[in-house]
Design a protein around this nucleic acid. Structure first.
Lengths: 220, 220
DNA sequence: CCCTCTTTCTACCAGATGGTCAGGGGACTT
DNA sequence: AAGTCCCCTGACCATCTGGTAGAAAGAGGG
């Protein structure tokens, strides 16, 4: 894996992805991805039928298979694009000027913003980060580099004494699962008859930040 | 719904459940439930095939259907038994002598103990507390009464000034999703190549207790 | 010995699913 | 106008799905 030279380059590469993106069918491909994300993220991969998916889009199942070869291929494409969305959000923060603790806080806020704007994406993450999921390795491939970078950055900060020394990977995974858990929480709230409000999300965010501060801030 | 007279009675009722439990087929029924719990909790309801399930047990699919009528019926039975397990663990604490904050802490420890001993159960919870899950109402029916009781107790404590006044239901759901999120976290850890240790679980528990203390303890 | 109840099996089915194959039609090039 | 490429579709298929019908094999009681 060649390390990208600048953050901007990484953003561009991530945004484009590997698929052909020009041509008349590009819009169809995007619509398929949108619907697939919604379906995978709610009723799950196994619960999604290509026929239903196509029916909802007013196209035939064969069109989906033409663009994405197989159902697995479609899942892979959805995961890739979603991971790219997250990458963009995070890399924007990393390219910003915030430093030290401010940067951590900015990252958390950025992720929560994505979670609020695209709740479906959280559903997909939950679906994919599951024991038997066929896309688990794919997700690892798409998000892994960013995680590695974050971990490396944290360890550099620790070396410089600007962060308390702990297990960076453990903290990252903890934060990750908190965010994904948010999707579950919102669903449970809805099942309990409560319409989820900004308040629950804000509470979770505050809680996560408190945890991170307790783990990382050298002054406390 | 008739309110049970004593806690002990509730425990007994919950443990037994509604199914016939004597007879030669009882062992088979239990084995089926065990395997179904494992399968539903990992690869999910839709991902589970009755043929595979039976194959793993060395029996025919029709035997499963004989005992549990339909796939849905099987899921219902699994959810019921799992909820009963949780109920037993929690009611034991509620029948104990701990009071006030000690009781909250005992409850949390009890749930985490169950989560550690039966990780599959957490997987099932995650699977079931999902938007399209066919067993969501069932889970609500099985766990709802306990949640209501917990909520009522908390509100009584608040009235008596032994607990800080907050939205009891919100706190409960928050705690619930933290525990369920633990299942996700453990899986992600495993995917990242780290064998989950006691430490991660302990961290989560400490974190949850801190959150609860901040929300509920009137002295802080 | 027969009768009944329980448990498990074999045989079978209708429907749905993911996927293949060949073809049609539009747009752009030469 | 012919060729070529991209996009989409209808027809078809092998396989797997949950579920039904009926019978065999015991066990136990009369």
């Amino acid at each position: 894996m060649a390390e990208p030279t600048t953050l901007r380059e990484t953003v561009r590469d991530t945004v484009r992805g590997a698929g052909r993106s020009s041509g008349r069918g590009a819009e169809t491909r995007e619509r398929i991805l949108d619907a697939a994300l919604a379906s995978f993220g709610t009723i799950g991969y196994d619960g999604t039928s290509l026929d239903d998916l196509a029916g909802g889009l007013g196209i035939r199942k064969q069109t989906i298979l033409y663009h994405y070869v197989s159902k697995r291929g479609l899942l892979g494409a959805v995961v890739d694009r979603s991971a790219a969305d997250l990458n963009v959000a995070l890399l924007e923060v990393l390219a910003g000027e915030a430093t030290d603790w401010e940067r951590v806080e900015a990252l958390v806020r950025s992720v929560f913003r994505v979670a609020l704007e695209q709740p479906l994406l959280m559903g997909l993450l939950r679906e994919v980060s599951r024991p038997g999921s066929p896309a688990a390795p794919r997700l690892k491939g798409a998000m892994g580099p960013l995680m590695d970078r974050a971990q490396a950055w944290m360890e550099r900060e620790m070396d410089a004494g600007r962060m308390r020394r702990t297990d960076a990977q453990l903290v990252l995974i903890s934060a990750y699962s908190t965010v994904v858990g948010l999707a579950t929480e919102i669903e449970v709230l809805r099942a309990a008859g409560l319409e989820p409000t900004m308040r629950t999300v804000a509470t979770r965010r505050r809680e996560l930040l408190r945890f991170l501060r307790a783990s990382l801030d050298p002054l406390r």
